[in-house]
Design a protein around this nucleic acid. Structure first.
Lengths: 118, 118
DNA sequence: TCGACATATCCCCATATGGGTATATAGTTT
DNA sequence: AAACTATATACCCATATGGGGATATGTCGA
């Protein structure tokens, strides 16, 4: 098996920095493709491809406006990511994360005391 | 260019579900590789490869303990992900996200009234 | 020293990627 | 209808992937 498709879920879709940029721009409001092309400095087909990925995972929605296609953000699929990372927030918030390692090293330093006689 | 390497950053490393599982397990405390192999039901080389990726982006750290290698979590690199998604939290929290679309649709329904006379 | 265990690395493969360029599709204006 | 604008798709390519299997490296026990 190769890597999971970018369209598999929000995690994979958002792993690409360009797609995050697109979402960041759309967070400021609806935009036609050409705006994104200009703002990103990318080739138009590239932008369309990124938008397709984002559409497939539901992170953006489109609306036809004349000959333009207005893309807008739908952050909902990002909730799964948020829910997951949220649980790790303490990892960089607390200072106790190293505790178990410190304990292990202490135990090691104690030498052959295999009994945790406490 | 192909897709960015999985070792590029936390975003790419964590896009793989197996690697998230590994982190989830390690969140419960240090573990030797074999524990992970058993818990994940994956082939041992596979687990070692995933651990390598996680190590390269700094999400796990290793410690030699006899013939075992104890892996432990370092959630810090996840902060960048958290910081990014955090800004989208309102997207699924609020109900106003559709506002601009609703407005656009109203405008459309109004017909050719190009002046926003309000 | 030899065998058993624990882990990492090597090589092989099918696959989807992101970028490029060219072209198709669709709407608008004249 | 023809010219023009806006967007999507098709095709080509180099690359790294995740999984498989075999094997190297390293540690422990007898």
């Amino acid at each position: 098996m190769a890597r999971a498709a970018t369209t598999t879920d929000a995690f994979n879709a958002v792993a690409e920095p360009r797609r995050r940029q697109i979402l960041d721009i759309l967070a400021g409001g609806e935009r036609p493709v050409n705006d994104l092309v200009a703002l990103l400095g990318l080739a138009q087909p590239l932008v369309s491809k990124h938008l397709r990925v984002l559409r497939e995972v539901g992170l953006v929605e489109v609306r036809d406006e004349g000959r333009q296609r207005m893309y807008r953000l739908n952050g909902h699929p990002l909730k799964s990511i948020h829910d997951w990372v949220k649980n790790y927030e303490q990892s960089w918030t607390q200072r106790f994360e190293q505790l178990d390692v410190v304990l292990a090293e202490l135990k090691e330093a104690e030498g052959g005391d295999d009994g945790n006689g406490n």
